[in-house]
């Protein structure tokens, strides 16, 4: 995976598997056995054994299935300060060396060579000019990356135990209590946003701060961004900032459109070199 070349990320999946092969196999088997039972006996809403738990926490907003949440990153505003990464790490207790969101610096020279780096995921900002580029620089910019919350998410399709799914209000989240850490979703994600959390040993990724959104707050990174390069909201709400941008002449693009994953993360000012 290309990302690993410049994120200080090691090959996490492999490490976890090697570290605890037996635990992994046990967990995985448990998962598949349970998984196959679900297939044998199809589950329906009319479960005869269980009453569904209906008690919702008082301080949560109700899920809004009519909302279409989108995230917009404006590359032309990003100064590469890393505030978003700092906020994200602390908000979500992300282990060192792992990233739910990160910032890449693109440098393109006159000969169309593309250089990308992301020291420590951009967590400490970008304080040095790259010294390894000999030709004159044609273009340079920062690209924040995070989960795309695809409408047609490959990571969900490959999960053998139904631990990752799309909520009725459109967020792709991971049920850590159900995940067996098999790592299929890491391979399936075309955007490299998933990792096996070193502390929990389960798949983890950006949730667009679902826990904040359901309490009426913005994702931590959006709140922390000093230049408005990160925007979040409900595209179906005509008064929201994101809806106004989506209906403006601004050109919005998504990453790897041809894969047909239908991301809900849009970019403004994305050059064709960005992958």
């Amino acid at each position: 995976m290309k990302l690993n070349n410049f994120l200080n990320n090691k090959n996490i999946t492999q490490d976890v598997i090697d570290l605890d092969r037996r635990g992994f196999i046990n967990k995985f088997l448990e998962g598949t056995v349970a998984g196959s039972l679900f297939v044998v006996v199809p589950m329906g809403a009319g479960d005869i054994f269980h009453e569904l738990a209906e008690d919702h926490e008082k301080n949560l907003l109700a899920m809004n299935p009519d909302a279409k949440y989108v995230f917009i990153v404006d590359i032309t505003q990003c100064i590469g300060c890393g505030s978003c990464c700092v906020a994200d790490k602390k908000e979500n207790n992300v282990p060192d060396g792992q990233y739910r969101t990160w910032v890449e610096r693109y440098v393109i020279d006159m000969l169309e060579n593309v250089y990308v780096d992301s020291p420590n995921g951009g967590l400490n900002g970008f304080n040095e000019q790259r010294t390894d580029i000999e030709n004159e620089i044609r273009d340079s910019f920062f690209v924040p990356k995070l989960c795309n919350h695809c409408e047609d998410a490959p990571c969900i399709q490959v999960c053998p135990v139904g631990a990752t799914f799309t909520t009725p209000d459109g967020f792709v989240i991971v049920d850590g209590t159900h995940c067996v850490g098999c790592g299929y979703c890491l391979q399936a994600c075309p955007y490299g946003v998933r990792f096996i959390n070193e502390k929990t040993h389960t798949a983890d990724k950006c949730t667009w701060c679902y826990h904040r959104v359901r309490k009426g707050k913005l994702p931590a990174c959006v709140n922390a961004c000093p230049t408005g390069a990160r925007k979040f909201g409900d595209a179906n709400d005509r008064n929201s900032e994101v809806s106004k941008i989506l209906h403006s002449p601004a050109i919005l693009t998504v990453l790897k459109k041809d894969l047909g994953t239908a991301p809900a993360l849009f970019y403004i000012g994305k050059r064709e070199e960005v992958v």
Binding site: D47, F49, A53, E57, Y210, H211, K217
Partner: peptide
Amino acid sequence: FLTPDSWGKYGHYRADYIDEEANRSINY
């Protein structure tokens, strides 16, 4: 015994997790 409560309420997953995730505490 192996099916969690709330499995299949909305789809092939444990619906109760939605609110468990949403109830995670806020740091910022």
